[in-house]
């Protein structure tokens, strides 16, 4: 468990927004008396107005509970001498400015959270090992580690994922994914599950299936370069967000090329997973046969994952409802493949 110390300030509000509501973070108001912490604490996050009288004193009172090995992350409004001094008075391990939300989310304190996943939803060690392996890859790619389809870690993770998806099925995988807190990470792992089942159903030869799996793990890698505020705002998009969001395909393609990715199918899938068969997609408005089949499969898996994902702004969708919406996209998608995808949904 992580402890998040807050007050009613703007910085506390924005930190909560960035971190999201999650069962793994316990929020405690600084103004209240320190509660008894029964769960084991892995780290502390301090997000309160350091300019205000008494904030540091209240913080120190709460942080008496902190053990030496537990890191303390202090979130500040700006980085100046006074703020730094107060952060070190609290005993900060690392300081993040709230304006750099991406930096905050990339702090190892969160990366470790995704790695050391509790497994309340599955007691199947093979499945959990497969998921933990892919979560580790996604965490690393999204926090900037150079990864290509030739990376050994990636291939080990993919092999385990394919094996467990083919033997345990998609449903068990999706259930276990509920333990992953970040919606961006969870999305990637859902797309992987749908794509692998889809590829199995379409009888893809194993080398192509592995390419499809690698492409699904890497498809949104470009989002690592986008501001976290925009990513987390998927539901209530502000004007201008769309244009920024759309850059993730080119960013991802360029990142992978810079990492030395050689596989054309994977580069193509990352660059073109938002193209539509009728030419209405982005970035190149490609049409029909110009879009490679593996890319079309990734597009379908990606759309289905978006359709089935729970959002606060709408009621929970059933598998069938989401599939109907996929069908309703008509000639935007490869109709033959959408028909075959029905087997994944069943």
């Amino acid at each position: 468990m992580l402890v998040l110390l807050t007050d009613t300030s703007e910085i506390a509000r924005r930190t909560c927004e960035v971190l999201g509501t999650s069962g793994a973070i316990r929020q405690i108001n600084l103004k209240q008396a320190p509660p008894l912490l029964t769960d084991s604490v892995e780290g502390w996050i301090f997000a309160a107005d350091l300019d205000q009288e008494g904030t540091v004193t209240a913080g120190i009172r709460h942080l008496r509970e902190r053990a030496l090995e537990q890191p303390l992350i202090v979130v500040t409004a700006r980085r100046d001498v006074k703020t730094s001094a107060r952060a070190s008075a609290l005993g900060a391990t690392r300081v993040h400015e709230i304006s750099n939300a991406a930096g905050l989310l990339r702090d190892p304190i969160f990366a470790n959270r995704f790695m050391a996943m509790p497994s309340p939803f599955s007691n199947d060690p093979v499945l959990m090992a497969a998921i933990a392996g892919t979560v580790a890859i996604v965490t690393e790619t999204m926090t900037g580690r150079a990864t290509t389809s030739a990376s050994e870690d990636l291939n080990t993770a993919i092999d385990a994922a394919i094996a467990s998806l083919q033997t345990k099925g998609v449903a068990a995988w999706l259930k276990a994914l509920e333990a992953v807190h970040s919606p961006t990470y969870r999305h990637v792992l859902q797309v992987l599950a749908f794509a692998v089942s889809f590829g199995t159903l379409t009888k893809l030869p194993p080398p192509l299936l592995r390419k499809l799996a690698a492409a699904s793990l890497l498809h949104d890698i470009g989002k690592a370069k986008l501001p976290v505020e925009i990513l987390n705002r998927a539901d209530r998009t502000a004007p201008g967000d769309d244009a920024i969001l759309q850059t993730h395909v080119k960013l991802g393609f360029e990142m992978l090329r810079a990492y030395g990715e050689r596989d054309f199918d994977i580069l193509d899938a990352v660059l073109h997973h938002h193209e539509y068969m009728d030419g209405s997609g982005y970035p190149h408005r490609m049409k029909g046969a110009q879009i490679r089949p593996l890319t079309r499969m990734l597009t379908i898996a990606n759309h289905y994952a978006n359709l089935i994902e729970q959002r606060p702004s709408r009621p929970v969708r059933t598998k069938q409802d989401a599939y109907k919406r996929l069908q309703a996209m008509g000639h935007k998608l490869d109709l033959g493949l959408v028909a075959t995808f029905k087997g994944v949904v069943r």
Binding site: T202, K203, A289, L335, G336, L337, A339, T340
Partner: peptide
Amino acid sequence: GLGNEVEIHFQDAKLCVPGTVAWKTY
């Protein structure tokens, strides 16, 4: 790699039929 709309030429029957893809595997 076929798209949604196709045209099939049956050489032996000298026939050309337009159609749509209903399902697809590799």
